[in-house]
Design a protein around this nucleic acid. Structure first.
Lengths: 120, 120
DNA sequence: GTAAACCCTCACGCCGGTGGCAGAGTCAAG
DNA sequence: CTTGACTCTGCCACCGGCGTGAGGGTTTAC
């Protein structure tokens, strides 16, 4: 499929997809007209890349776990990848805890505002 | 306190703190020697700014809820602030759910790697 | 056969910093 | 009274993950 279709099906912008390819996270065939041609698995691959990006992985880190982006090729990861995963799990724990605390603060604040609005 | 101490106590860089002040998130007295002079509450204020930044608020948004950064001055927020808070709560919900799903995926992957390592 | 829609590359801009540098003032200790 | 650590303003440049636009080629639909 061409880049526009991949963009539409993943929610990523065309620009982002080109960026992922430039950065080596994604591979594309090229026809005689230099257009990128992506296979079906690229859809899930892009979605997974975006989930990782939203949650604290950098492009470089994603490249290092690239083998895990497809469901083929399971196995054959090095100790570095394992260490990265373990570190990211801890990071995610911390971020989740922080977000929860922030939610509590905001909810508390909204409650106060509501009480103030009602109590007059 | 002077900017260096505030930086040390909050973990923010001196540069960042100047940036927050320029952006109007933070106020500082100035002595006769143009040095910034922060009060004790600035410590918590900077920490709160950083929590918000890490969790999806932009500088502009933080400025708009600036009145809520201190524990004084509660009350007198406009409807825009309430809308922002409500939207951010939903965003945080989504982000937390996604992070949990990602954790599950990573844990699953780590489990597979472990099984593979053990089963040979 | 032409207009719209798509694709290409190149290259600059944004945000929330972070760093560095210059040139200068200030403060505390020896 | 000097030395070193700190502070000030102002500027320029970098990062990542894109957005945006220029200037061009290709494909598709009428």
């Amino acid at each position: 499929m061409k880049i526009g279709e991949l963009a539409a099906r993943t929610g990523a912008s065309v620009r982002s997809i080109r960026h992922y390819e430039e950065e080596g996270l994604l591979r594309a065939e090229r026809g005689p007209n230099r257009y990128r041609d992506f296979g079906e698995p690229a859809v899930e691959r892009v979605q997974r890349i975006r989930v990782l990006l939203r949650n604290g992985f950098t492009i470089d880190e994603i490249r290092s776990v690239a083998v895990d982006l497809d469901d083929t090729n399971l196995g054959s990861v090095c100790a570095d990848v394992v260490r990265l995963y373990v570190a990211k799990l801890a990071e995610l724990d911390a971020r989740i805890a922080e977000m929860r605390a922030l939610q509590r603060r905001i909810r508390g604040r909204l409650g106060e505002i509501e009480r103030q609005r009602t109590a007059t």
